[in-house]
Each structure stands twice: as C-alpha cells, then as structure tokens.
Amino acid sequence: MWYFTGGLVLFFFLLQVVSGMLLSFYYVPHVEQAHKSIIEIVTKLNMGWFFRSFHNWGAQLSILTLLVHLFSVLLLKAYRKPRELLWYSGFLLLILFFFFGLSGYLLLWNERSFAAVRVATGGLGAIPLVGNFLKAFLRGGVDVTQDTLVRFYAFHVVVLPIITLLLTAFHLLLVQFHGPSIPLSLEGKKLPQVPFFPYVFLKDVALWLVALGILVTLSTLFPPEIGKKADMLAAPPENIKPEWYFLFVFQTLKLFPGEIMGLNGEVIAVLLVSLAVLFLFLVPYLDKKSADGKRSPFFTAISVLYLGYFLVMTMVGFFS
C-alpha cells in the first residue's frame, strides 16, 4: 500500500499542471481584478466552477498524499542508506508543495488568504539574520501588496513548476536507480520479484482511477468558497484559520507568549519550528543505526512523536 503513495502524488501533480494551465487562461493577477476574475471563472465559463474546484481539491489531496508518503517513508525507515538523497529530494518537494499551496492561496486575494500570507511571510521575518531578506524577497516590498500578488503568481505558475519538475525527475531517477526500499524486518529474506511493467503499473493505474473518482466527487459536491475580497485596511474575520496543512504551525505559534525570559517569544517559536523541520530533514544523517541496517527504536519514537504532534495540533486547530 505504502509503495503507491509516491506514484499517486505524481498523478495529482500532473492533474494540477493541466487544470492550472486551464485556469491561467482566465486568471488576472491584479489586486483589483484577481478576485473578480475567479468569480467570473466560476460563474461565466463552461465548467469553470468545476475546474476551479478540481484544482483546489487536487492541491488538498496532493499535500495529503505527500504527507502520507513522507510519514510512511519515515516510519518504515526507507530513508536509510543508500536512499538518503531520495529523502532529501522528497523533503524539498514537500516544502515546494507547501509553497505551491501558499502561493496559490494568495491568488484568490480574499481576506483569509491575504491574512495568511501576511502571517506566513511576517513569521519568516522573525528568523534571525536572513528573515528580513526572505520576507522582502517574497513580498516584493515591505508589505503584502500588488507586488506580492504578481510575484506569487510568477512563483506559482513558472518558478515552482519548473523546479518541481526537475526535482521530481531527479527523485524518480533515484527510485529507478535504487529500486523500492525493503523494510528492515524483511531485509535479507527472499522476496518474490515482480516486474514493474505491467504488474505494478496496473495496480498504480487502478489506484489513480480510484483517486480521480474521489477527486471528481469532492470537486463536484464541495466546491470551495471564494470569500470576501481582501481589504488591506480591514481586520481579518473572527476565528480566521489557515489551510489545514498549516494548522499545526498556526497552533504552535499561538502557544508561545510574547516574551519568554526577556526574549522575543515569536523569534523563539519560529526558531524552534525551523529547528524541528531541519531535524526531520537531516534524519537519514542522524539515524546511524538504520544506516547500519540495525533496528532504531529511538527514531521510530521520534517519528511517532512528529506524526502525533502534527495530527493533534491539526485537530486542535480545526476544532478550536
């Protein structure tokens, strides 16, 4: 089962490329036009409502599948030697997908997306040394404005797809090179060898069809809301929340008070989150036991902790 999640992400990504291309024919990246152009896509174009919904749900399912893929690789220790580069490239792809989500979200130019991007880029500004540079680079100026919208549009439709395609090609090449990972418990045992084509491929395609069915059903039954147009001088709505995959960071930031022992709580929170992400990124390097083919219960516990924290904080954020 876990072997198919990677292929499923690829399938969703290809669907996103196609539906995104169609939407880009009509979307206008301007603060006065963006929100209106989406309303027009949804209300005036043939099947416009469907393709917009399809692109939105495609993004949600891509990230969900990617997270399942990440945690399955983490828990099965599939990152261990000699597949470290697969983990590193996959991890970078996850970050790219998150950035895809954030940049695509701003294109709506509604009050939620405006506040979300302000918070996300503002949070980056709290990183010591490089924070302000990153913030200004992403925003294209000192605040979230027209410059940010057009910049995020460029990231979303040009920069990120190209980097993602190159990195995905590299990731797939490594999969070809190393073959699928075998769990530690089964290493050394004789396993039945099945050729990829047509046996595994057929299973892949069957799963893709089921996924397509789920995606089309969700897109048809639950089209996402467009919301109110962003007003740069208005307060965000009560109980505002980011997309579900950012909820764990959102909840974490809420936990930290303004000042901790005389230090800025925001800086400490952003630093701790960054360190936790860096630790996860470096797991293949840090987990020496798995690299030697031995059982590594300490890193299993850490992986379960990460998964639990993500799930609990997401749920708390969702229901609070």
Partner: peptide
C-alpha cells in the same frame, strides 16, 4: 505577525484575530 487589528468597544481593547 502583522495581521490587522480591530477595536472591541465593549471590552475597550484592541484585538488581533
């Protein structure tokens, strides 16, 4: 994190949602 704030007259406080 640079969100716009709002004034709550009943509580006489400013609030960031």
């Amino acid at each position: 994190m640079e969100c716009n704030i709002t004034y709550k007259p009943e509580l006489k406080k400013f609030y960031c949602p």
